[in-house]
Amino acid sequence: MLEIQDLKVTHGPIEAVHGIALTVAEGACVTLLGPNGAGKTSTLSAITGTARSTGLIRLAGTDISRLPVEARAKRGIAISPEGRRIFSNLTVRENLVMGAAGRRDKSAIGSDIRGWFEQFPILGERRDQPAGTLSGGEQQMLAIARALMSRPRILLLDEPSLGLAPQITARIFDIIGDLKRQGITILLVEQNATAAIELSDYVYVLNNGLISSEGPAERYGDGSALMDQITGVHG
């Protein structure tokens, strides 16, 4: 589904990612792990087109690396970004409508929104509330639902568990597991190695803008060794 080769990402004069390759097969959940500043968000930004990059980014066989942000979204790239970035001045429902803004089949939008309200009843209850009044966990659910409102080919998730309490984090990972079972292709960026490895098929570890290790999820066991490496705890 997604194929990346020799990707270099720059922010002005700074090169954050120095040439990586990465593949996400259709229906797979692939995790990109790494410590703070490793270049995870930069990689996702290159895929969505919000950061400058060189190299090949192929989505469903076609190179999208020269397309503007909105054209990539229309072709099937959706993101729940770092910090969630929900539209806090819009209602919950309006956020979901925005998620579908690039879609052509406008008629199915209403039923999709109802579907999400069934899947996340808490969002349904708060449908006409400003999204800024939601709790962190609810905002994360909304960010994921908003991304999926475009019926994307691939869902990019940037640290969905960041800043959430342990139970809420568990709930978010449950949701991601559900999405995977529904057949949605996922590229997950995380620092929580244990939880991410449990639900992914393949793992890449990013360090200082380069992939330092990769392999099938099973190879990393329960991820505790990686967790130590990422959080810098030894022992």
């Binding site: 539209f87 001045n89 925005m98």
Partner: peptide, 16 residues
């Protein structure tokens, strides 16, 4: 209204 808050996110939703 959304763009007043976060224009890039609006583009990420597929609007030009």
């Amino acid at each position: 209204r959304a763009a007043a808050l976060d224009f890039e996110m609006v583009r990420l939703c597929g609007l030009r």
